[in-house]
Amino acid sequence: MKVLVPIKRVVDYNVKVRVSADGSGVDTQGVKMSMNPFDEIAVEEGIRLRESGAAKEVVVVTIGAQAAQDVLRTAMAMGADRAILVKTDETLEPRAVANALKAIIERENPGIVSMGKQAIDDDMNATGQILAAKLGWPQATFASKVTINGERAEVTREIDGGSATYGVPLPAIITADLRLNEPRYASLPNIMKARKKPLETLELSSLNVDTASRLTTISVAEPAERQAGVMLNSVAELVEKLKTEAKVI
């Protein structure tokens, strides 16, 4: 079985993003970029599936500019076998990404698509679900544990108030939540080896899929800063305010 891991290059989670002065977006020029942290978890899960014998090959794919190949190299340094860069200079929405991934999946025929539950830039949390719908595959989102039993995966998902375990017929989409695993370090020898692993580049246009945007960003703003409230004198006053004014208890 093959595991396909779609990954995204995003502004590094340590970077404090800034809204650009003209309000058109977030200033990403010159800031450190790295692999979306949830995608790192998805890559790690793919590698673990191969190491456990459940999978034979781990293929990573990203859709983005030429520079996005650095996250593919990182994934291969972690242990992915090969990589595909679908090149485009445009920013795609989850619907468009799902269309492009569907074309790649039809070519690669993976048994599992392991992907991050959301990217930390647009916070959409949607690509996996849209992709599953378009493929007619089952989905197991927000996974915290995955085991493979032949043609089925058993996936524990994070749900409101706890967790639930599902039997998932393969092929399926699994989206990774934080607790699924702790991704390994890309060691220096492995980074060196990853430079020699195969990386295929193809143009997004060659996939012939609909990648039009359905959302237009009108403006991006910084959230309003919280204003200081009132100072109270006693616990009784506090409880009263919480009950009658804020209505939260």
């Binding site: 702790e182 390994r184 370090y185 220096l188 020898p189």
Partner: peptide, 10 residues
């Protein structure tokens, strides 16, 4: 730890 990765001699 579980992800221990030893340093390398360059």
């Amino acid at each position: 730890g579980p992800n221990f990765t030893p340093g390398m001699i360059l």
